[in-house]
Write a protein that binds this DNA or RNA. Sequence first.
DNA 1: GTCAAGATTTGGAATAATTCTAAATTGTGG
DNA 2: CCACAATTTAGAATTATTCCAAATCTTGAC
Lengths: 147, 147
Amino acid sequence: MNAVGKKTGSEFSERLNTGGFRFTPQRQQVYDVLLQKRDHPTAEEVFIRAKKQMPEISHATVYNCLDALVECGLLRQVQLDRGATRFCPNMREHCHFYCDVCDSVYDVDLPAKSQPGVSLPKGFKAERYEIAIHGVCPDCAKAKMKK
Amino acid sequence: MNAVGKKTGSEFSERLNTGGFRFTPQRQQVYDVLLQKRDHPTAEEVFIRAKKQMPEISHATVYNCLDALVECGLLRQVQLDRGATRFCPNMREHCHFYCDVCDSVYDVDLPAKSQPGVSLPKGFKAERYEIAIHGVCPDCAKAKMKK
DNA sequence: GTCAAGATTTGGAATAATTCTAAATTGTGG
DNA sequence: CCACAATTTAGAATTATTCCAAATCTTGAC
């Protein structure tokens, strides 16, 4: 993996295989869209961007691809507000800052040993943590002050 | 506030007023539904339950009430998966455990000083943290083992 | 108390997000 | 080359949420 977390074609393909999926140009395209602009797009937005390179791609395929990529650990699914689900290709441990004013999303690094020491009742098996910070982004904070 | 976090009628009404809202029987009813069964229902589920006591209540009103109650700090809105938003009347600091198998949600207490020491870049104003733990609940874990 | 203004509710339509379906296409192993 | 399974496609269907205009309710001013 290089500095920006991009995977080579064969790494990408391997990941899919490991998860029981085949490599397809559509899956590659969807993944590329996510890597190209890391603004946590919704499925609809991914569809629009993917269409530019691959005009015949369908809605259902985009959903299928996103699900497959999430399942094999190449993408994360992010749930922030009542709106559409967003997707994120950054698989490092991090959390999301969500601006309640403009709906933008930012990746935020977590301190090294941050796994919150939550103790779960007996029998619960935790698989992953999702931390979202809601607030106001710098741009919107500035805009607010002017008022 | 008593042991289960229930508010008296007047506390409830005050909260609404402070947020700039009026007391209405519908808002009371919606809030009561949330208090009666703390299983993190969706808006649709709240609608169904509220209808039992108040058959004329409408869909739009349930959404309006839920939004009002969230805004004046009587409810929390919980986003866990691609499905509908859920609501939670527990305003103590806690996080949610979501069972990816059966979709059930559990409140999980956070250790006293758990506010993750996330350092936000300059200019970001954090207002609240939402922590979700995804995994498998005891029932589903048991069911899985049998297979 | 009465009236006007503003808040709230209602039912239904509209929109948005996601899933489903059946047929066509593609890729793979035998 | 064939059969089978995975995948894609377009479009319909479903689910979740929001919007809208009309009716109703509440409150403060008089």
